[in-house]
Design a protein around this nucleic acid. Structure first.
Lengths: 301, 301
DNA sequence: TCAAAAGTGTTATATCTACACCCATGC
DNA sequence: GCATGGGTGTAGATATAACACTTTTGA
């Protein structure tokens, strides 16, 4: 009954087989992780009455080496033999930004043949959401020149064609990443096809300025996932400080979803995800606002 | 301005750098794909009046080699250098089951260090849903001994502990895979922890009989994803024949979700995903049922 | 005083749940 | 006739959307 006693066609036990196993027989791709580290900040606001606007930001690193020398890329690196993919991502996150991640999620694994000119590279992407007000995020004072870029994400064009047995829906999304000095842009084409019974989606980089590799595509994917997940999970709170006002929370929703929300409806919707405290904002130039914290007993149902 | 003219610290242009790039400097893991091929079949039913019950099935392959010789594993294989991950998955799907997939989705990439005793193997898992009544699925008559296993998925134990700043929720799920001769089982522990601001989930194989590698865990993950996606996408229709009754569709929902649904509510919910035809079932032992097809203009919104 | 935001209430409209009920068929 | 599934109607509860309105502050 012992599995170790089973012998294969060559008469080897499992132990013998493993001892004779030669990895080097097969050519292997390289595996990397890429990190999408999002945060939210306040923009400048000159009117003393108005609330500062929020902006979604993404951390990028200027490439100091070939390929894509001088362009901006997602932080990341190779997965070493002794660590899991998740550990590699955590290690990179820590070394690039000094953050012990509070939220990290595997997004998608990118493996097109030509995506890296050096060699065949398969990259596993992770999304991390951080609260910039609480964390000591080192970016900008790093040798690698890491910088936060303000992310905007807009529908540029849409096209729908109907067929007897389905349709094709094509969208062009414009991504802009605005840094202190540079403006990076990309246009991503997303084609949803329904033929017969089910939807298929293909994405492609149409145009790209200053963003290395296929990272524009990865960014687009991450934004979509973020927009999606914010609707039915509690991930937003990873972007928030421990105490926040409901207006601030609403602003974060709005900047991620890219649309305005009605305050009354919003408050009701998120009511049981938050708990009110006895504290209030001060010196706001208008009526003070109650501060809330995340309800750690929140449950989707 | 030409990027090719930029020189790095060693004074190389991008072209020169790429020519001198030596892949063999770094040790690399192997990359595989694993396919979760689900389908639905009718079970035997002796009462002429009753409808046959539906069962969810998963395709597994008996291992003819070490490691896990004699156990059952997900179909899959190594990703070759000249093909994308998706192409590798499609190729394997075609060769293992003779199916040109109508639906295929990347699930998750598994990369724990010890998950394959041969060497470091990172595996990208894909889920495929097939309509067994229409496809010529070769399984069982294959040299590799591929077989459909009936999948059941049950909550065995749950435990919730509340803390001041969060909670821990632990679930034990029992998976059973019933083949013609063999019964494979596994227990997966899923721990959701909320500490401070956001949920973290960890899964682990507690017990496993007859299922190779960490595939029990991958199967558990896939079932959860399937249960989730069936609620807000049109993926079910990949499991259905072109024409079906609403009761059949409901049965498929029920077998995937593992719970009974009210017919009236179900019909209203899926009303605009389907289109009625003029055809009816015959010889059913009860009132004939109208046949429906997928509404290829369906839209989530 | 007033601009801006904070916060509540109201009404109409969907959507979901649970259940009751009638219909059509093959044996 | 009757067991079984097919199919519809309805009342109550709950959620959503749109909008109007009141409150509170700092300058």
């Amino acid at each position: 009954m012992d599995a170790m006693e089973l012998r294969d066609r060559s008469g080897l036990t499992e132990k013998e087989f493993l001892q004779s196993y030669d990895v080097s027989l097969y050519e292997r791709p390289s595996v990397t992780v890429d990190m999408l580290i999002f945060t939210v900040t306040d923009k400048e606001q000159d009117n003393y009455r108005k609330l500062p606007e929020k902006a979604l930001q993404l951390l990028l690193i200027k490439r100091g080496e070939h390929p894509y020398l001088g362009q901006w890329a997602l932080p990341g690196g190779f997965v070493a033999m002794h660590e899991s993919i998740e550990e590699a991502a955590q290690r990179e996150l820590k070394s690039e930004t000094n953050i012990d991640s509070i939220y990290m999620e595997q997004l998608f694994t990118w493996g097109d043949v030509g995506r890296d000119p050096r060699t065949r590279v398969i990259s596993c992407s992770y999304m991390a959401l951080v609260d910039r007000t609480a964390m000591d995020v080192k970016a900008g004072d790093d040798a690698d020149e890491a910088r936060w870029f303000e992310v905007t994400y807009d529908l540029f064009q849409e096209k729908r064609t109907n067929f007897d047995d389905g349709f094709e829906y094509e969208k062009l999304m414009k991504i802009a990443l605005k840094g202190e000095l540079e403006l990076l842009t990309a246009t991503i084409k997303i084609v949803e096809t329904l033929k017969g019974r089910s939807t298929k989606m293909i994405t492609e980089i149409v145009e790209c300025k200053g963003i290395a590799f296929d990272h524009a595509q990865i960014i687009e994917y991450a934004i979509r996932r973020l927009q999606n997940k914010i609707e039915y999970t509690d991930i937003v709170f990873n972007l928030m400080p421990p105490l926040f006002t409901l207006s601030e929370l609403q602003q974060v929703y709005e900047v991620i979803l890219g649309k305005e929300l009605l305050a009354a409806a919003f408050r009701r919707k998120i009511a049981n995800m938050v708990v009110e405290t006895n504290e209030y904002t001060k010196d706001a130039g208008h009526r003070p606002s109650k501060l809330y914290r995340f309800n750690s007993n929140w449950n989707r149902y």
